[in-house]
Amino acid sequence: MNKKAKGFLNEFKEFISRGSVMDLAVGMIIGAAFTAIVNALVNNILNPIIGLLVGGIQFSEWKIPLGADSAIDIGAFINAVITFLITAFVIFLIVKALNSLHRKPEPAPEKAPRLCPYCKSEIADDATRCPHCTSILTDGAEEKNEK
Rank of each mutant, 00 (worst) to 15 (best):
144 K>Y: 05
64 I>R: 02
75 G>Y: 07
42 V>R: 02
96 K>N: 08
69 D>V: 07
142 E>L: 13
107 P>T: 04
50 I>K: 07
36 A>Y: 13
115 L>C: 00
76 A>N: 12
30 I>G: 03
61 E>W: 01
30 I>Y: 03
25 A>S: 10
22 M>R: 09
131 P>E: 14
74 I>R: 08
128 T>E: 14
28 M>Q: 11
20 S>A: 11
71 A>K: 05
91 I>M: 11
133 C>R: 03
24 L>S: 13
75 G>N: 07
80 A>S: 15
24 L>D: 10
40 A>K: 08
38 V>Y: 08
22 M>H: 12
142 E>I: 11
76 A>M: 10
115 L>E: 13
24 L>V: 05
38 V>S: 02
112 A>C: 02
132 H>M: 02
120 K>D: 08
108 A>T: 08
48 P>V: 07
125 D>E: 14
28 M>H: 04
86 I>Q: 00
58 Q>M: 07
141 A>D: 12
92 F>G: 05
119 C>G: 05
81 V>E: 03
29 I>G: 10
37 I>G: 04
63 K>R: 15
48 P>L: 11
133 C>P: 01
79 N>Y: 01
93 L>Y: 02
123 I>W: 00
79 N>T: 03
77 F>R: 00
69 D>T: 14
27 G>D: 12
29 I>C: 12
105 P>H: 06
101 L>Y: 07
66 L>P: 00
66 L>Q: 07
11 E>S: 15
82 I>P: 00
115 L>R: 14
49 I>N: 02
132 H>W: 01
98 L>G: 13
82 I>D: 00
11 E>M: 14
11 E>L: 14
30 I>E: 03
125 D>I: 03
108 A>I: 05
31 G>A: 09
91 I>A: 12
8 F>V: 08
97 A>N: 01
78 I>D: 00
142 E>T: 06
37 I>Y: 09
50 I>Q: 04
18 R>Y: 05
122 E>I: 14
